[in-house]
């Protein structure tokens, strides 16, 4: 498992001794008579960061949405700790943190109110914890402003604050670097490294060259 390149592997006998955190076998997805990907196999284990690469329109976002269960227009199997996700949906979703293109930040609410709601869908949080997380992503002083007064990068940061609070094991992040400044990029990379070191797993799409040890890559298209 030390290889740093795509773990595309068609041999069904190569089952690892510990079941992978997330294991996708033989994924096939078609859109408008165009095959986005077929016979796609990959897995992520604890402590790994998987970067999904590919040109625009190659199906990166579609793949991530399939993994989260937001899109069901695919064939193939996805297993969570060796078992089908449908049989353990509650555990899977409790361990999942998804950040999409649309960051999930309501424009009229403040960063604090937004963060409180998104976090309390998963876990209990108190205000101090939220304030610390917002300060850490550089939103000190903006906690109570309405989000439509913030820039796109700041709204992205509201969403990133979730990463600091969440207990989720698997992070699925779709283009999290797009609107961040260089300092924000460094901070997010440190977060990804920290999460992997603590035994979590990350699946991330970005065109950015990630500075993370033991990075795995999966190229689509």
């Amino acid at each position: 498992m030390a290889s740093s390149v795509a773990s595309t592997n068609n041999d069904p006998n190569s089952v690892p001794t510990i079941p992978a955190l997330l294991d996708a076998r033989d994924l096939f997805c078609e859109r408008d008579d165009r095959i986005l990907f077929q016979a796609l196999n990959f897995s992520v284990t604890e402590g790994q960061v998987l970067q999904v690469k590919g040109s625009n329109g190659s199906g990166k976002t579609t793949l991530l949405r399939i993994l989260c269960g937001l899109n069901d227009a695919y064939r193939g199997t996805i297993r969570w700790y060796g078992r089908a996700i449908e049989s353990q949906a509650e555990e899977f979703y409790a361990a999942l943190l998804y950040m999409g293109h649309r960051v999930g930040v309501n424009k009229v609410l403040s960063p604090l109110e937004n963060l409180r709601w998104t976090c309390s869908l998963q876990q209990q949080v108190d205000t101090d914890e939220l304030m610390v997380a917002l300060a850490e992503v550089g939103l000190r002083g903006f906690e109570e402003s309405q989000c439509y007064t913030l820039s796109a990068g700041q709204q992205q940061r509201v969403s990133l604050a979730r990463l600091l609070i969440s207990n989720a094991k698997l992070w699925i992040l779709d283009e999290p670097f797009t609107t961040l400044d260089s300092l924000g990029v460094k901070q997010l990379e440190a977060l990804l490294r920290g999460h992997a070191d603590e035994g979590g797993a990350v699946i991330v799409t970005t065109h950015h060259q990630l500075k993370v040890a033991d990075l795995r890559e999966l190229t689509l298209g």
């Binding site: 269960g69 998804y98 999409g100 999930g104 309501n106 998963q122």
Partner: peptide
């Protein structure tokens, strides 16, 4: 509408509840 457009709806769908 607003939840759909800003992505909050996805978060709602992905909650474990």
């Amino acid at each position: 509408r607003a939840d759909y457009e800003d992505g909050s709806l996805e978060q709602l769908l992905l909650s474990s509840h």
